[in-house]
Nucleic acid binder design. Structure first.
Lengths: 199, 199
DNA sequence: GTCTATATCCAGATAGAC
DNA sequence: GTCTATCTGGATATAGAC
């Protein structure tokens, strides 16, 4: 009994989802080059050959995941930028949202950590490198703008806004790290502690 | 003209130094498995064969570097533990010392970042894994003790000391990350911003 | 779409000359 | 101690059957 077009597309998207999810997990834990296609196959329960039916190389999978990571991050950052709240509350909301995600979602921490790793490494595919170059400054810029605005209004401490933005994001990356080490034993710290640096 | 024993030992230690330095740089940037022995050879200017004269495998080099990293870190932490200063000033000194090192020394950031990476990865040699397991809690414990003491004396803010210790170290790791990305364009933030969380 | 079998290539490690 | 040449294993990617 032949499948129709919708069924085929559904299957295809399910398969690619599985591959991407398994690969994210493995790449975050072992890195690109220590992750074997056979690992991805084992993790998804597919054969090695079948992986190649959907992606032409390990690098292509990796690049796809990096793009996904920035899609998610940029979306969240843009929402933050546009939301109607005073600057100091934006920062609080951002911390809280990020920390909650970090605590409850394995994948959230994995994305953060993978991007961090990929940003440092020069042993990554060209496509991934390009995506990183094009996107990496955006979150820092937006946070810096928010901080500047708050400082003008007198609600945010008057340290160098660029430094403060760097601290905001490196704190998150550091915690994502820690989460990656501890797995779901990780308990996110209170956002209040972090907010002491800003208000 | 034959060399005497001291000259041989000097040469040996110079060679191993070179290999370790080059490997630290490469491992931090690309990870263990993406770093080839031929890369290390090229970076040191030695032949591939010569590397094997000093180390029996890539894993052995890696394990050695991880041990070095903890030797240095533990030494610094122990000094901090024993130095005669009130708790809040210990924390300040610790931040300042770590930030200055991060800014001026490539290797300092590399060690931090490499340990972070190694702590997450399960694709590392057994020996390295063991070293990490045995040492990773020590810095967190000491910092937590210092914080507890300061809280009893009323000089440090009264958030959960365990969370505060985690934040202390993850902040450093996050900044080491950032340093690894930016290289020597990195400008360390003021320790005062970070101290806002503690005093 | 999916699997098994296989070709190819490349990195790790060794051998042996100097 | 150092180099070049080589062996070997394992991972990527392909081919072809079902």
């Amino acid at each position: 009994m032949p499948r129709n077009r919708e069924q085929n597309e559904l299957m295809r998207s399910q398969r690619t989802e599985q591959i991407l999810a398994a690969s994210l997990k493995l790449f975050a834990r072992r890195g690109l080059s220590a992750t074997k296609i056979s690992d991805i196959a084992a993790e998804t329960g597919m054969s090695q050959g079948l992986i190649y039916h959907y992606y032409s190389s390990k690098e292509e999978i990796y690049t796809e995941i990096i793009k996904d990571a920035f899609r998610r991050l940029n979306e969240a950052v843009t929402i933050l930028k546009n939301i109607q709240l005073p600057p100091e509350e934006k920062i609080k909301k951002a911390f809280e949202g990020l920390l909650i995600n970090l605590e409850k979602s394995d994948d959230s921490a994995r994305y953060h950590y993978l991007v961090a790793q990929a940003s440092v490494s020069d042993a990554i595919p060209e496509g991934a490198k390009k995506t990183i170059m094009e996107n990496r400054d955006y979150p820092y810029q937006i946070m810096e703008e928010i901080i500047r605005e708050g400082q003008e209004q007198g609600t945010i401490k008057k340290y160098d806004p660029n430094q403060m933005s760097v601290i905001f994001w490196t704190t998150i990356k550091g915690l994502a790290f820690h989460r990656a080490v501890l797995g779901n034993r990780f308990k996110a710290p209170s956002a209040d502690i972090l907010m002491e640096m800003f208000i």
